[in-house]
């Protein structure tokens, strides 16, 4: 968890800086999606959006490694393609007659800083072809793989690179905090 950052905690309820504006925008979009184009719903919606953004700022304060738009543009196609490959891979292994399994554990040391980046990384590993994150000790991720013959290491490294780009973390620096 990232706790040691300097966000004005004791600020006024609706002080409009960049972070809170972004969150309000996101929650408004969610409200619009949930309720459709009914204008009268915003009587409840506006307080709900404000409370939700305040709560989210309290529960997960903005990190110093914000999302980068360019990184997201790279990450989303990569993620979609890789997870599609993962689905195909699983389908091949389940539907073919002989069992193609050769499972095993692989351990990987990540350079991503603790906090949201690492949690995001660990969760997305499970959606990549043939890998499943099974344990996380500090910066060591234990990965269960369906097939030890697959290039697991390279796959995870590519994912790590993309996550770092998404979260604006330079891969040279050991720690961005």
């Amino acid at each position: 968890m990232i706790r040691d950052h300097h966000v004005p905690r004791g600020s006024t309820l609706f002080d409009v800086n960049r972070h809170s504006f972004l969150r309000i925008l996101v929650f408004s979009a969610v409200w619009w999606v949930l309720t459709g184009s009914d204008i009268s719903s915003w009587i409840v919606g506006i307080p709900a959006v404000l409370i939700a953004s305040k709560l989210s700022l309290m529960l997960s304060p903005p990190s110093q490694c914000p999302l980068s738009l360019l990184g997201a543009l790279h990450f989303i196609p990569f993620f979609l393609y890789q997870s599609f490959r993962g689905g195909i891979d699983v389908m091949r292994r389940t539907l073919l007659r002989q069992q193609l399994l050769d499972p095993g554990l692989v351990s990987y040391v990540t350079i991503l800083p603790r906090g949201s980046a690492r949690i995001f990384f660990v969760n997305t590993i499970s959606l990549l072809p043939g890998t499943l994150s099974a344990k996380l000790d500090e910066n060591q991720v234990t990965v269960h793989t369906l097939d030890r013959g697959m290039p697991v290491w390279a796959n995870i490294q590519a994912l790590e690179y993309h996550v770092a780009a998404l979260m604006n973390i330079s891969t040279q620096k050991k720690n961005c905090l």
Binding site: T94, Q99, L101
Partner: peptide, 18 residues
Amino acid sequence: RFPDIYTRLHALTKADNV
């Protein structure tokens, strides 16, 4: 079909999400 809990997790998450 899969033999143990980890491989079943693989099948469940990936295939269903895709």
